[in-house]
Design a protein around this nucleic acid. Structure first.
Length: 588
RNA sequence: GGGGUCGUAGUUCAGCUGGUUAGAACGCCGGCCUGUCACGCCGGAGGUCGCGAGUUCGAGUCUCGUCGGCCCCGCCA
């Protein structure tokens, strides 16, 4: 090893050199990316986070011997003058492609075993292997770009919120288990035998108490933990942009978040219009069959109950008579498929849990065709066509049910058909607020009312007197932020009155006793002068994944876990010794 | 908890209705090569077909179980 070269400092990164550096003596340090050994001349591409630079070794037998010993992923220091490449040897594919470094000194700083997969390019590798050797995966352009984007977005968030007077404040990670919501990760206490901390599902109560504490505007980029089953967009630990504001209503929260999202989107060079459109939960559910509608395209679900109210088709007539609805979805250009294809759509709907799906279309001569032509009659179906107004080549799908049942089904079909029909403009950014969520919903499994958002959410004042009489009809001051059909955040204006908070707990069948035990400290805090306040939590991982165009949040996290919540690199979770368990009072 | 899908060389994959010695590309190792940048040419090594049973004269291939990756439902205030 060449001690002298190792002792020198890095003068430039591997993405930095340009023609104006020609003549300068430089030292680069980085990983051996690729070697092209031509015998009398050896080209080596050196890589770091910033880019790639070609260095060339020739003429000197000792240097050629050292360069010949290099292998992929060795870490090296290389010194020499920057030279301009001749016209024929320019490489326009890399940023540093107009120059190269003529090697005068090489030091091998670290050798590397042959990597289990090729780091030198984006050749496909199984995710299992990428996770096992995450440090190698992080060297590849895809992950490097994603982690870099995540950093820039995180900084944009900090800058935006700082500029608006928010303070970044930390809250405890060793905290108290609260009822409702997701399963907690528990941490046994050594000093308090038999007692447990919980890792936070979110800093909800602490941030509200910060408002009671007069902090006025708080944010935190914070890890949250939920012990539930995983998905492409769900990890056991994930990061929230947590925000809370005092003396505000919805408009103030929306404004801050809209400016925040503008700053975030600027990181990928996109301008977004504000304010974001708002639609109520009820509108979203009726029109798009989802509380997180993808508004990059319209294709709304329509109500065609009138066509069947008095018709001969008993199934639909009975549903309408029973207070349900018959809904229609027009799929543009989908009307010219073979019958077998239409049957497949019906099968698909049934797989989604539908009792059935009806299709209607018009033959080129205008004649109505439908899977229920005989049963429902031409008159009713003609009325459907009048109401839903499909174009000549369109397909109309019908479903019926109670409540949002039919629109939810057609909403799912809407997403699939739009995707398949190429109706989704991937370049569009559709951000929207969904507001006026129900405060509570009936849980069949628990046989009680549960909060739809969380139990600290304020009901809308005009609905508050119905809380006991008709709790299901009470709307909340809760809102979700939706991006292209993905929920990327949710929040609410909170209850700042201890009396009202206690009333909500009673409705949720949380006894006074339990409420005191679980968050008595919080109820107490509310009694010492609480400003009206509200906030939101945004899913940082989801936002970065969507902006990076990645299908899974794993691809924007440095060290994610598998669907089985295992870290393949470190091997957690793992067994621990008896002694450790004993100290924690978990084993005799 | 349930359903689907994948598992063959270091990697990504091929391997037909079960049949002789399981292949390709990239990578790796050795040799040659003074302007490459997907360097080229010559040669070579490399396999518990995830694991375990079973069916069969014979299993990478069929059956059952099991483990692991991924996707979905439930779950995720």
């Amino acid at each position: 090893m060449n001690e002298q070269a190792e002792a020198t400092r890095r003068t430039h990164t591997c993405g930095e050199l340009r023609p104006h550096h020609v003549g300068a003596e430089v030292t680069l340090m980085g990983w051996v990316h690729k070697i092209r050994d031509l015998g009398g001349v050896i080209f080596v591409d050196i890589r770091d986070r910033h880019g790639l630079t070609q260095v060339v070794t020739r003429d000197d037998a000792d240097l050629l011997e050292v360069a010949g010993r290099l292998r992929a992923e060795f870490v090296v220091a290389v010194s020499g003058p920057v030279e301009r490449r001749s016209e024929e040897t320019l490489n326009p594919k890399i940023d540093t492609g107009e120059v190269e470094v003529a090697v005068r000194r090489i030091a091998i700083l670290s050798q590397a075993r042959t990597p289990p997969f090729q780091v030198d390019e984006d050749t496909p590798v199984s995710e299992e292997l990428r996770l096992r050797y995450r440090y190698l995966d992080l060297r590849r352009p895809r992950m490097r770009g994603n982690i870099g984007l995540r950093h820039r977005i995180t900084m944009a968030v900090r800058n935006s919120l700082d500029a608006e007077g928010f303070w970044e404040i930390e809250t405890p990670m060793l905290t108290k288990s609260t009822p409702e919501g997701a399963r907690d990760y528990l941490v046994p206490s050594r000093l308090q035998a038999g007692q447990f901390y919980a890792l936070p599902q979110s800093p909800q109560i602490f941030k509200q108490i910060l408002m009671v504490g007069g902090m006025d505007r708080y944010f935190q980029i914070v890890k949250c933990f939920r012990d539930e089953d995983l998905r492409a967009d769900r990890q056991p630990e994930f990061t929230q942009i947590d925000i809370e504001m005092s003396f505000v209503d919805e408009d103030a929260v929306f404004g801050a978040v809209e400016r925040l999202m503008q700053a975030v989107f600027r990181q990928i060079g996109k301008e977004v219009d504000v304010p974001f459109p708002r639609l109520t939960y009820d509108d979203a559910m009726r029109r798009y069959g989802s509380d997180k509608p993808d508004l990059r395209f319209d294709m709304p679900v329509q109500n065609v109950s009138d066509a069947f109210r008095d018709g001969q088709f008993k199934v639909f007539r009975d549903i309408v008579a029973g207070g349900g609805s018959v809904n229609a979805l027009v799929a543009p250009g989908a009307g010219r498929q073979a019958r077998a294809q239409l049957d497949k759509l019906v099968d698909e709907a049934i797989e989604l849990g539908a009792k059935g799906l009806v299709w209607v279309r018009q033959a080129p001569d205008g004649a109505i065709q439908s899977s229920i032509l005989k049963a429902a009659g031409e008159e009713a179906l003609t009325r459907v066509v009048e109401l839903a107004a499909p174009g000549p080549d369109d397909l109309t799908l019908l479903a019926a049910g109670q409540g949002y049942e039919a629109s939810v089904l057609l909403g799912q079909m809407r997403l699939r058909l739009a995707q398949r029909g190429g109706l989704v403009d991937e370049s569009r950014t559709a951000l929207s607020w969904v507001v006026d969520f129900p405060l509570m919903e009936w849980s069949a499994t628990e046989q009680r009312l549960v909060s739809m958002h969380h139990p600290f959410t304020s009901p809308r004042p005009e609905d508050a007197d119905r809380l006991e009489a008709d709790p299901g009809a009470v709307r909340a001051r809760a809102y979700d932020l939706v991006l292209n059909g993905n929920e990327i955040g949710g929040g609410s204006i909170r209850i700042h009155d201890a009396e009202l908070q206690a009333r909500i707990f009673r409705l949720l069948q949380i006894s006074d006793e339990e409420a005191r035990a679980r968050f008595g400290f919080f109820l107490e805090a509310l009694q010492y002068g609480t400003p009206p306040h509200g906030g939101i939590a945004l899913g940082l991982d989801r936002i970065v994944a969507l902006l990076a165009g990645e299908p899974s949040i794993r691809d924007v996290m440095a060290f994610p876990k598998t669907a089985g919540a295992v870290d393949l690199m470190s091997g957690s979770p793992s067994a621990v010794g008896r002694r450790q368990l004993r100290e924690l009072h978990l084993d005799r």
